[in-house]
Amino acid sequence: MSTRHILLGLLASGPSHGYDLKRRHDERFPQARPLAYGQVYTTLQRLVRDGLAEVDGTGSDGGPERTAYRTTEAGARELARWAAEVAPPAPYVTNEIFTKVVVSALADGDPAAYLRDQRAAHLARMRELTAVKTAPGADLATVLSADYALNHLDADLRWMTTTAARLTTLTAEVDAT
């Protein structure tokens, strides 16, 4: 996930300052981890260094002094290039659930019990996300991000269901190695 490109995208709609960018990011991507304030400023400075953004001006509005940034032509080009670029399909399985099941099977643990609990947690989260998505007045970004999360959780869940059915064989195979 590239914070640089997210900020460039937010700047595309017009100049704004750091705090405003963080607020808009958290609004747009409610299911993502909130941006740290410091991270916004370091990223903005790097964008300026690389010529993708520039300082628009400073103002204080009676409060602390704030610097507003705007995107450059190079920045717009970079954003367009990045948005059109195909993301590589994840080549490695680095998921914690998978690791835990295999390790649990290796260590003579109870992967089946773990899967049951994990499944319950997944379903509870899916119910929350469904409620968020179907709440009246949910905006497009909320629906899209909830959908994205729901489908990934559903994929996890399917894998867990299949794995639970396979577990006896899996345990035997892991033991044999």
């Binding site: 997944h122 379903l123 559903d154 399917r158």
Partner: peptide, 8 residues
């Protein structure tokens, strides 16, 4: 599961 998630 995506449909079941609509339930309480």
């Amino acid at each position: 599961a995506l449909v079941a998630a609509y339930a309480d």
